[in-house]
Structures are given as structure tokens and as C-alpha cells.
Simulated scan of single mutants.
Amino acid sequence: MASDKRISLRIGSGLGAWLPILFYAMAALCLMAVDARFSISREIRNRTSMLASPVWWLASRPQALWQGAVAALSTNDGLRQRIEVLEKEKLKTDLTLQQMLAVQSENAELRKLLMGRQRLAPTAHVVELLNINPDPSQKRFIISEGARQKVREGQVLIDANGLVGQVAEVYPASAVVIGITDADHAVPVMVARSGFRGVLFGQGSDNRLSLANLTPSDDVKAGDILLTSGVGGRFPPGIPVGQVKAFRQDPALTFISAQVQPFARPRYGRHLLLLDVLPAPAPGPAAAAMAPAPDPVTGSKP
């Protein structure tokens, strides 16, 4: 009897344990059927996701902030490197552009010199300007050719615009040129319009010459072009020298002086044109007896 009771209790207890499972299974089936018919779970999911969105956003913020900081740092570092590369490329480009502009300017200068050569002296040749005397009162230049290239004292130099000066001293590898604006220099000139002849004196200024000892009856006007007259045989005739700008009269004197602006601009170029025409020999053996000074470039004597 006792054993039958234990068997019945075991059976009863087994059925009791399965009842909740069966209940939940039936409820699940019912809910699935209702959801399939009325789509209730979709609405529940939508409302639940709306309520959970702030929680998800807050939970994702640390990772998003970290990723944003890493991306920003990487972007800034990349931009800095790119800027450095672009700055270096810009420097190289600027240097190349400056070199191209210098070459272009030099080519234009050489073209003008060659045109002047064809117009004035077919046998002239181009020389390089090595140095300019820093003393503002002396307008002296050093050119790249000397006695070895058969340069002689008195040879005339021009640039693309007009008369520059003449060779004053010759050394083995260089020569000193005295400019027409030097205070110790004078050039016989003529007015291209009227043919009037006079002497043009340097004033020690790059932009001013003086045509002195004029009288009111002399046919010289503002704007007249002055050319070398060829008088004295020192300068070939017809080389442009300058233009008359104004007149000035000393109250104590009866003479008038014309202020002339020279055409040549040797300080703005690297090359000059040396005319191969030799001047007339100077009288007297005193100059030939003088010993030459050392070459300012090589330190040697001719």
C-alpha cells in the first residue's frame, strides 16, 4: 500500500511540474496567433525602441567621442604634414619663377643690346658688368674683359638705351669704365632736331647731366634728344645720350645750363656693349710712360 502511494505521488508531482510549461506554451502560441493577426509586437517594439534610444545614445557616446578624437588628431596631423609639403613646394616654385623672371629679363636686355649692335656698330661685342663703385660721387664700373681680350683705353660702352661711358683703365682680365654721369666726364653732343653742338658734363648723379654755357639764342628746347656729335674723335657720332628736361640760369651769369636726363641705365642690367671702334690717339707720350696699376680683379699687371 505504501509503495502505491509513493508511485501516485511521483506521478502527481510530475504532472504538476509540467503544467506551468504547458501553460506558458499555450500562452505563447496564443500570443503568436494574436500577433500574426493584429501585429501587436511591432507596435511594442517601436515604442520600446523609442524609450531605449536615449539609453543606447548615452551608451555609445564614449566610443563615439574616442573615435572622433582619434579621427580629429589624425586629420590635424595629416593636414600639418600636407601644409609642410605644400610650403616646401611653394618655395621651390617661387625660386623657379624668380629664376625664370631673371632669365626673361636678361634675354630682353640681350635682345636690346644686339639691336643696338646692329644699329651702331656691327663689330661691337657684349661684356658683363662685374662691379659698380659704391662711392656716389664717382660713377665707375668694372667690366669682365681687359687687355687679354684686346680692350683699349677710350673704347666706348653703351647699353640698350644709350651711351654709358668709356674705358678709363685697362687691366689683364678687367677694365674700369668711367660713366658719362661722373663729375669728371664730358661728352661732345649735338641736338638731333636742330644740329646745335655743345658739351655735356656729368654732375655726379645717375639721373642728371648738364649742357652748360648756353645762350638765349642757342636752338635748344625742352624735350630735345641729344646724340654724340663725333667731335674730337672720342665717341662715334649718333649714339643717343639723353633728353633735355629743363633750363636753369645763374643770376650772376649770362649763360644758361640745360638739365639733361641720360638714357643709359647701367645699374639696372648685367651686360653692356663694348664698341670696337678705337678713339683717336691722345697727343703726348706722358700717358704711355705711366705705369699701370694692379688689376682690381686679379691683382696682376698687364
Rank of each mutant, 00 (worst) to 15 (best):
S205L: 13
D206T: 12
N207M: 04
N207C: 01
N207V: 11
L209S: 04
L209P: 00
L209Q: 07
S210V: 12
L211H: 08
N213F: 07
N213I: 02
L214M: 05
L214E: 01
L214I: 06
T215R: 12
P216I: 12
P216Q: 07
S217L: 13
D219T: 07
D219R: 13
V220I: 15
V220P: 01
K221F: 00
K221A: 14
A222P: 15
A222C: 12
G223E: 07
D224I: 08
L226D: 05
L226H: 04
L226Y: 11
L227Q: 13
S229I: 01
G230L: 04
G230H: 01
G230F: 03
V231P: 02
V231Y: 10
V231T: 08
G232M: 09
G233Q: 00
G233S: 00
R234K: 14
R234Y: 06
F235L: 03
P236S: 13
P236M: 13
G238I: 09
G238Y: 10
G238V: 10
I239R: 14
I239W: 00
I239N: 08
P240D: 10
P240C: 01
P240E: 07
P240S: 06
G242I: 02
Q243H: 04
V244K: 03
V244D: 04
K245F: 08
A246N: 05
A246F: 00
A246C: 00
F247T: 12
F247K: 03
F247R: 01
D250N: 15
D250K: 09
D250S: 15
P251G: 05
P251L: 12
P251N: 10
P251K: 12
A252I: 14
A252S: 13
A252T: 13
A252W: 11
A252M: 08
A252Q: 14
A252N: 11
A252F: 13
L253R: 10
L253A: 10
T254Y: 00
F255D: 15
F255I: 10
F255Y: 12
S257K: 02
S257A: 04
Q259I: 15
